[in-house]
């Protein structure tokens, strides 16, 4: 079954025709060409495909495309403003939060969701917020540090 859907992604209004059994991740990557969100496990475990869905972090591989009708979605591409990287992105670069980089978009999205609730999270809160994001390089220590520094630096 085809669905005409409309949603807002990274601030832009989009109209699309999607199939019932397409995932939101497929649409974001293959139709829109926004390849920041990654295919990982495709079972909701690794968090590489994390996006903000109406302000909340979800795994885009576990959302059906037609469910996104009317939603507001932010991917890692939507974090930067104009040419200015988001403070979290800068901090990931400065503090080596990116090793192979595959998990980074998902990590950034989870971190962004955390910072919009809690401006100065404790290490434990950061760890809890990242429970759904796996890093196979094991760069967790630097990822946590990157988030901590970014949260302190925020105005």
């Amino acid at each position: 079954m085809k669905h005409e859907i409309e949603f807002i992604i990274n601030g832009q209004n989009m109209q699309f025709t999607v199939d019932s059994n397409q995932t939101l991740l497929e649409v974001i990557r293959e139709e829109l060409g926004l390849t920041g969100a990654k295919y990982g496990c495709s079972t909701g475990e690794c968090g590489a495909c994390s996006v903000l869905f109406n302000g909340e972090v979800v795994n885009a591989c576990m959302v059906l495309a037609p469910e996104a009708a009317g939603a507001e979605i932010i991917t890692v591409e939507g974090l930067a403003e104009e040419d200015e990287l988001h403070p979290l992105q800068k901090s990931f670069i400065d503090h080596h939060g990116v090793q192979c980089g595959y998990c980074a978009p998902g990590m950034l999205i989870s971190a962004k969701a955390l910072l919009s609730r809690t401006s100065r999270p404790h290490e434990e809160e950061i760890r809890e917020a990242l429970v759904g994001n796996l890093c196979r390089c094991g760069a967790y220590a630097d990822i946590i540090k990157s988030i901590q520094v970014a949260s302190r630096a925020r105005r």
Binding site: G44, G47, S50, F53, E56, V57, V58, N59, M62, V63, S110, A113, A129, V131, G132, N133
Partner: peptide, 9 residues
């Protein structure tokens, strides 16, 4: 329970 991604859905 699980992760924020799972709990949010």
């Amino acid at each position: 329970l699980a992760s924020p991604q799972v709990r949010n859905r």
